[in-house]
Simulated scan of single mutants.
Amino acid sequence: MRDLLSVDRDANKIRLLRSTYSGTFVLVEGDSDKTFYNRFVDELACKLIVVSGKPSSKQRVIEVLEILEKSNFQGILAIVDADFDRLETSTFSSPNLLRIDTHDLETMLISSPALNKVIAEFGSEEKITKFNLDVRSVLLETGRSVGYLLWISRCSQLNLTFDGIKFSKLIDEKTLQIDELKLIQELKNKSQAYSLKDEELQQQLKIKKSKNHDPWQVCCGHHLVEILSFGLRGVLGTNKATDVEPNSLERNLRLAYEEIYFFETQLYSDIRTWETNNHPFRVLPNNI
């Protein structure tokens, strides 16, 4: 009941803002999302509103959007992570709800040339060449196992805990390949889910991997950044842990992400389409 009241409160705050602001309201999931999109939106024509809370910020964004749509509120747009939505059939759809091209904001950054810039700054060309590594491909292959297990956990309501995974215990320091059995055991221990069978989870993971889904929709960006951080301390570079800690790497990826990369995304095209269908409301500057 408290969560429902809270969602209504979020919607009412936006209704109150409408009395003094006639532009577009764009709902986003968190402060880092707001910081990122602030670089691209027209601040005079558009206000970014962070909606966060339980059970998840994304769910809250969608619930607030639904409430406002039911009251025929104009000039409202929501931008959320895709997560596993493109791999599932029953997902909420609305012309006022846009999803990022990839699983989440961090994977969108990693899929762009921003990663090349970060590797050039923190990586060792000599080491990467020596081990003949395509960094982006290696990250995706390793992160795919973690992403699939996260998806399995959500679909089967296993409630496995993925926060704070010690990737250094699970990944080969020379190849960055992950030991899937150790990963499963780590997740079970962290989640105190000792009744789950290793073999059953391994079989479910094998089935998922055989489907050859788009890894950009499977992998979670935070996991990829954690794996990158580990690699830049060994096979990909010679950095101290404090120099390439994950939060710092994510900041560097955001800073390395240029406007031209954003213009090439489907999200950019979708925003332009939304503007066309919702005149006179705008999100992006007219000159880009």
Rank of each mutant, 00 (worst) to 15 (best):
R2W: 05
D3C: 11
L5A: 12
S6Q: 07
V7R: 13
D10M: 13
N12S: 07
R15L: 15
R15P: 00
L16K: 06
L17Y: 03
Y21H: 02
F25T: 01
L27D: 03
L27V: 07
D31P: 00
S32M: 13
S32R: 13
D33P: 10
K34P: 00
F36P: 06
N38Y: 05
F40W: 08
V41Y: 02
E43M: 04
A45F: 04
C46L: 08
G53S: 09
K54G: 02
K54F: 15
P55V: 10
R60D: 09
V64G: 02
V64W: 04
E66V: 09
E66F: 06
N72R: 12
N72M: 05
F73C: 03
G75K: 02
G75Q: 07
I76H: 01
L77M: 03
A78L: 05
D81F: 01
D81N: 13
F84D: 03
L87F: 04
T89P: 00
S90M: 13
S90T: 08
P95N: 07
N96W: 07
N96S: 12
R99A: 09
T102G: 01
H103A: 11
D104S: 06
E106T: 09
T107H: 03
M108A: 14
L115M: 12
L115T: 12
N116H: 03
V118E: 02
A120V: 11
F122T: 05
F122G: 06
G123W: 11
K130A: 11
V138N: 00
L139W: 09
E141L: 10
T142H: 01
R144I: 02
S153E: 04
S153R: 11
C155P: 00
Q157A: 13
I165C: 08
I165G: 06
F167I: 08
K169M: 08
K169V: 05
K174M: 13
K174N: 15
L176W: 07
Q177N: 14
I178D: 06
E180I: 04
E180R: 08
E186D: 11
E186I: 06
E186T: 13
L187S: 01
L187I: 09
K188Q: 14
K188T: 05
S191A: 01
A193V: 04
A193M: 08
S195W: 11
D198Y: 01
D198N: 15
L201E: 07
Q203D: 07
Q204Y: 08
K206M: 13
I207E: 12
I207V: 14
K208I: 00
S210P: 01
S210L: 07
N212M: 02
H213E: 15
D214P: 01
P215R: 06
W216K: 00
Q217H: 12
C219L: 05
G221S: 03
H223L: 02
E226A: 05
L228A: 09
L228T: 04
R233E: 15
G234T: 08
G234H: 15
G234L: 07
G234I: 01
G237P: 10
N247A: 15
E250C: 14
L255F: 14
E258W: 15
E258H: 15
E258I: 14
E259Y: 12
I260N: 12
Y261P: 00
F263L: 15
E264D: 08
Q266S: 10
S269L: 10
D270T: 01
D270P: 00
W274R: 01
W274S: 04
N277K: 15
N278P: 13
N278Q: 04
P280R: 09
P280I: 05
V283H: 03
N286K: 12
N286D: 15
N286C: 10
I288M: 13
